[in-house]
Design a protein around this nucleic acid. Structure first.
Lengths: 106, 106
DNA sequence: TCAATATATAGATACTCGTCTATGTATCAA
DNA sequence: TTGATACATAGACGAGTATCTATATATTGA
């Protein structure tokens, strides 16, 4: 499992405001000004957050005229929940199935 | 949706090593020394990571003799994937369903 | 052409975080 | 009792980050 790659994605999600941005985008494309209406921080701060989400492969951006439209990437919305599922699922390559010097608790 | 609370959980997951620890624990309880065998960092660093995971409500700890046993909390393993599902699902309270001055891209 | 609008970039600041070394504490076996 | 083992805590350091103000760029309507 590629921990480093997914750690990058999760790092990008590890912020209250970006989590809300992802939620806003979960029902469709929005431009930056529409997203900004939902927050108290400044426009450059939003610009920073959107760049973080793009770099992580969570969001794509398309410019039309004056507006920059952001959309959740389908790769993210489908692959990420699948990764979480696999992460928390018992798999047979785990160290706990191998020999160990420590005894188990009762 | 409680973004702040889940942002704390996601922050605790937003580290390559802690992600691997969660994966190791996904198939059952392990003591600290067993977990440490899988990493290159020092024992105090592991101790720090385990505290972060406990504070976030991801892992519980039980001491038996000399050993400290760690287990993934069932609340985490069941509720977190559900949160991710809801986060990425189109919901009807979204701002995109309300009035907006911005036009949509084609 | 000019002003307003939408967004990005630069640079600064304060804070958080991952890791280390050094050391403390608790448990157990001899 | 003593030494070894398992783990935690304290404190430091360097890197990263969330936010701001100031400013630049691009687009559009008048």
């Amino acid at each position: 499992m590629n921990y480093a790659a997914y750690a990058q994605v999760i790092k990008a999600m590890a912020d209250e405001n970006r989590l809300k941005i992802i939620d806003l985008l979960s029902c469709g494309t929005l431009c930056a000004c529409e997203i900004l209406e939902n927050f108290d921080f400044t426009q450059p701060t939003l610009s920073h957050h959107m760049k973080v989400l793009q770099t992580a492969g969570i969001v794509s951006a398309v410019k039309k005229g004056r507006w920059q439209y952001y959309t959740l990437l389908p790769e993210f919305t489908t692959e990420f929940p699948e990764f979480i599922k696999q992460l928390l699922r018992d798999s047979h390559e785990c160290v706990c199935h191998s020999d160990s010097s420590c005894s188990r608790p009762d």
